[in-house]
Amino acid sequence: MLEIKNLHAKVASSVEEEGTEILRGISLTVNPGEVHAIMGPNGSGKSTLSYILSGKDGYEVTEGSVTYNGEDLLDKEADERAAAGIFLAFQYPVEIPGVATMQFLKTALNSQRKARGEDELSTPDLMRLVREKSQMLKVKPEMLKRPVNVGFSGGEKKRVEILQMAVLEPTLCILDETDSGLDIDALRVVAEGVNALRSPDRAMIIITHYQRLLDYIVPDKVHVLSKGKIVNSGGKELALELEKDGYAAYEVDAA
């Protein structure tokens, strides 16, 4: 489903400078139904990888390729990638004053449906869908009337990210540090929401610094990212080792 081959990338503004490569040859294959965890220390390139996969401006891919369901992903705009089924749950969800959450969800879902040549959802149908998904994620109906992420607590923001994921039903979910800033109760609600979305046709990439989230969302595979490269891969037990020993060993190895 997702195939990343020898991906090298840097920040676009530092074209002239040497040694600013953030990703330095990542290869990764994710199949439908699989949950991959990508772990690594700060500055290892985890968030950059999530931005490059979802199509944020400001990065330049210097080498390698990314294909999604056989199509070149890097050629597509962010909105086209979303319509193709890629969803990024943001580490820092963006506040958008003046745009109500419900209106945002409606515009997003119907834009995607339109891009895929599907019929747009009517407002009552959409309200029903959103209300149903909101209950599971403990998102109160009043929140949907408020502007996107404005005045939401850290936990509320993350729950609304997962709500968006549940409504948009992507095929590849990328969760960027979704556990950051969450207390244990909020973490559990978010993890339950994510687990409810696990299915044989849907893959997930969980990007995290800590093992904690992986107690709740159990991955099939764990990769260690350090200095822009995957330096180790294994099963879920690898996450436990990292929790015990830290990243120090990898940082030395990769240098």
């Binding site: 705009e77 909105d79 958008i96 515009t107 997003a108 948009l168």
Partner: peptide, 22 residues
């Protein structure tokens, strides 16, 4: 904000229109 809207599948022009109105 523009990237957030696009990452949810909203095309650039529509995203800009939303932000202008907001």
């Amino acid at each position: 904000q523009l990237f957030y809207l696009k990452a949810r599948g909203i095309p650039e022009n529509k995203a800009k229109a939303l932000l202008i109105a907001a």
